[in-house]
Design a protein around this nucleic acid. Structure first.
Length: 612
RNA sequence: GUCCCGUUCGUCUAGUCAGGUUUAGGACGCAUGGAUUUCAUCCAUGAAACAGAGGUUCGAAUCCUUUACGGGACGCCA
């Protein structure tokens, strides 16, 4: 057992018989898809389902190419190539699709480990088939199994999030934190929070508090760092002065650091010359160094050359960013550095430092920038741009899960059609391989949409809790509000309203008798036809009702409709307007039921008098 | 200015590494229509992209060259 899979190729043949409405002819869609075409496959499936056609799987094969993956009875047991995570997901995902969506039994096909990877496509290869029971594929997908298997190999992963608390927490900052956290959780590694507060002038306690609050709000925790401690502390750079002194001395001893104008500089190796620099507008000393190669998990190999000595310690005695960053990464045994692309050009400095210390640099992953809305100008998103601050979403009562989901999708893609992710699914699926290279632009509409998707699936008890702050802020609920009434109100609002921010205006009339009338709705319903007659017809019948539930209320409207020959619709808008002051809201009958007989009758009466 | 990174519908993206199954897929947004019952909900349908030019190839979104455009860095900020 334990044959390693060398090539994953997911082949699929489907026969879809669809009756084309125009021609009336049945025709056949036939497709063979490799693992890159999962979306296509899903599309065919959903189209078949929509047309109520039959989808007939003709068979499929999975072959694996990537070295270092082993499948053992369908389970992942070994993985040493980081790129192969993606492949593993594909296998698992493919099986899920076949087992649960298509109702087809998954077949895993693999071939011997020692076969040459070429030619492609392989002709006439003998494939060994290993039949999988559907349950075993499900078993593969079980997150704990995946996490456990991956973590036992990758548990040496140590990533850090190293913010500088100089202001409000920015969405890009939050994303860097999230990606680091996801990578740590996905691999079973360690997530370190390190505070880069070497600039005493600009760091504030408030900013630090906000940062910590923001991370917690997003559901991110850290294994080592402030509040939690750890073996590599302290985790505030301002408290690590002695460590930096020691490391600086090492560089001085080896002749890689020198003092000039009271500051300490790093000494690059190579021939020195002076040149006029157009950017500095001055004659500057430069060094002909050997280029350094940055091994970037997202961008591949990036070659860059550092040509000027840079500061390690400022003349006031404080160490500089580049220096402390590298020293801490060494001292904290960081294995992967995941950060914004704006650091890519700094990385050559960092690699030079790692080399000077004789330490292997970590793996780098430079995330694409989040760009600002062109309306707001050009360039990367800044703290002043609309929607840029995490605190803003918190204040606007966005769900943290939705915000997390959205920023995860800013630069990362699961490679299939799924968009709504729980935090567990994110951990399971996240991978640096699937991070985009190009910059992403922030789309507020999509953020709201995702928020709505999360709101819809929230269990009602959590929904109520999440809704409370917004309602309280608007003064609609208080100590005396009946919990049961609140719950039934929110239950009928949940599927209709797309943000808690809009909830007060949407549902004010449930909690207060003094709601405003929507002018447009008033013109539409009260200024034409005979609205008062409709109210006067229905009110007495509703009053007679002994049981106040949806069915009984519906019965009243239906009976009246039968008597008068009108449709129930003749009364609905008028009654809705009378009780709510608008023409939109939750489903009509449940709304009346929740409002209660007393409120409904009172408001009908009030409206009839007002418009008489 | 120098160096580095990037570029698929308006936006987020799939497909690019291993060229052919693609009529370039999905989602948001937009438009139109529908849902005995309003609607900010739901459903259906539609418009909408491989930045340009060369090359390699039987075949290029995919490989190569180049131009354009966008982004980043160039601090005793982080």
């Amino acid at each position: 057992m334990g044959a390693s899979i060398r090539r994953i190729r997911f082949l699929f043949r489907a026969r879809v018989c669809e009756c084309h409405p125009a021609s009336g002819n049945a025709h056949i869609l036939r497709g063979r898809h490799n693992h890159r075409h999962l979306p296509r496959l899903l599309h065919v499936r959903s189209r078949a389902r929509r047309r109520q056609c039959q989808l007939e799987p003709l068979g499929h094969q999975i072959r694996a190419r990537r070295p270092g993956i082993q499948l053992h009875d369908g389970a992942l047991v070994h993985d040493r190539n980081p790129r192969s995570h993606r492949s593993v997901h594909r296998i698992l995902h493919a099986q899920l699709l076949f087992d649960s969506k298509l109702g087809h039994r998954g077949i895993l096909v693999r071939r011997a480990f020692d076969r040459p990877p070429r030619p492609h496509p392989p002709n006439g290869e003998t494939l060994t088939e290993v039949a999988q029971s559907p349950s075993s594929a499900e078993h593969c997908l079980d997150s704990s199994l995946l996490t456990r298997n991956v973590s036992c190999i990758m548990s040496n992963v140590r990533v850090r999030f190293a913010p500088s608390p100089t202001g409000s927490t920015h969405i890009g900052t939050a994303r860097t934190a999230l990606f680091n956290w996801l990578y740590a959780r996905h691999t079973g590694g360690t997530f370190v929070l390190r505070i880069e507060d070497t600039d005493k002038e600009r760091n504030t306690q408030e900013a630090l508090d906000e940062l910590v609050d923001g991370l917690k709000w997003l559901g991110l925790d850290w294994d080592e760092g402030p509040e939690n401690g750890g073996d590599f502390g302290p985790y505030f750079q301002s408290q690590r002065g002695d460590i930096y002194k020691t490391y600086l001395q090492t560089l001085r001893d080896s002749g890689r650091a020198y003092e000039k104008d009271g500051a300490v500089f790093f000494k690059l190796e190579g021939e020195r010359y002076t040149e006029y620099d157009d950017y500095q507008k001055a004659e500057i000393e430069k060094v002909k160094t050997q280029p350094v190669v940055i091994d970037d998990l997202i961008r591949g190999q990036v070659t860059r050359r550092e040509e000027r000595d840079f500061v390690l310690q400022r003349s006031n005695g404080d160490p500089s960013f580049h220096f402390v960053n590298v020293v801490d990464d060494i001292a904290m045994k960081i294995t992967h550095v995941i950060r914004g692309e704006d650091h890519l050009s700094n990385t050559s400095k960092h690699v030079e430092l790692f080399n000077a210390f004789g330490v292997e640099p970590p793996k780098y992953a430079h995330l694409p920038m989040i760009l600002k809305d062109p309306k707001d100008g050009k360039g990367k998103m800044s703290k002043r741009d609309k929607g840029a601050l995490i605190s803003e979403y918190k204040e606007r009562n966005f769900l943290p899960g939705a915000v997390r989901n959205f920023i995860a999708l800013l630069g990362w893609s699961p490679k299939d059609d799924q968009e709504v992710f729980t935090i567990e699914a994110l951990v399971r699926r996240f991978n640096l391989d699937d991070v985009q290279k190009g910059g992403a632009r922030f789309d507020e509409k999509k953020m709201s949409h995702l928020n709505f998707e999360h709101m819809k699936t929230l269990p009602i008890s959590e929904y109520v809790e999440s809704a409370k702050p917004a309602l309280q802020k608007a003064g609609l609920i208080g100590e005396s509000t009946d919990e049961q009434y609140l719950l039934s109100t929110l239950k009928i609002c949940q599927e209709k309203i797309d943000s808690f921010e809009n909830l007060p205006s949407f549902a004010a009339y449930f909690f207060s008798d003094t709601f405003a009338n929507n002018e447009k709705a008033e013109n539409k319903t009260m200024k034409k036809g005979e609205p008062i007659a409709r109210i006067q017809e229905i009110a007495p019948k509703l009053e007679e009702l002994s049981a106040w539930d949806k069915a009984s209320i519906e019965g009243v409207f239906n009976r009246l409709a039968a008597e008068t020959g009108l449709k129930p619709f003749a009364w609905f808008p008028v009654v809705r307007f009378a009780v709510s002051g608008t023409n939109s809201g939750p489903d009509f009958l449940p709304m009346l039921e929740v409002l209660g007989k007393e409120r409904v009758l009172e408001r009908l009466k009030r409206t009839a008098e007002k418009y008489a």
